[in-house]
Amino acid sequence: MSIPADPSLIRLDGVTLSRGGRVVLDGISLDLTERRIGLIGDNGSGKSSLIRLLNGLLSPDAGRVEVHGIDAAKEPGALPRKVGFIFQNPDHQIIFPTVIEEIAFSLEQAGRTRREAAAEASGALARHGRAHWADRPVHALSEGEKQLLCIIAVLVMEPAVLVLDEPFSSLDLPTRLGLERLIARLPQQVVLIAHELDAFSAYDRVVWLKAGRIAMDGAPEAVIAAYRRHGAERLAAAEGADPLEGAA
């Protein structure tokens, strides 16, 4: 696989973004040079919006986004091939009724002919030990298998970055651990959002977002420990009141 060795990075410079009249990202500046980056924070803190800037699904109101040498404002069309995106729910991502078509679609998007795409898609399935999946209808796959299919379909485009938005939320523990191991072996730069905090233990860096700003940024142990304290404090503050309401 040819992953551009461009170590340069993901750079966000003074990025501000509003959605529906609410500021969701407020002057974020980040240089992401590490290979494994985690993104954590409460619901609504801006995590999903931030990663959507990385492949052009959202554009900032102010500030600059640069991903491996591509200026998001100047060449938004180049981003989907550079940045593979895995969504929380595979059923939202899988477009085709059979496995092989889903993978071939990515390759056709990258300019292959239908015949080339079909051949390469079979090759990709075989590389992941799933050659027998080719003709399976996607609705017959389990959640974990669907998630794997999404990843295979994105990887064939040979992106430089893989962005994952809470990919573990519907997976059982063994499946999640398998997916973590698969991600760990990838040559791509990875940006992962997850609420399963132990998934980040071997990561290079974790960024904690809070109300659209960076609350903390650094080594996983320190950031995650601080985030756990924050969770406990919010719960304590809500003590006496309805705990769910306090945490909402």
């Binding site: 699904l57 995106f85 998007q109 990258a110 379909a153 485009m157």
Partner: peptide, 17 residues
């Protein structure tokens, strides 16, 4: 809402031909 999600996922892979 489902179609919104799917449209986003399609855009993330370079959009419709």
């Amino acid at each position: 809402r489902l179609s919104n999600h799917v449209a986003e996922a399609l855009a993330a892979r370079g959009g419709a031909p």
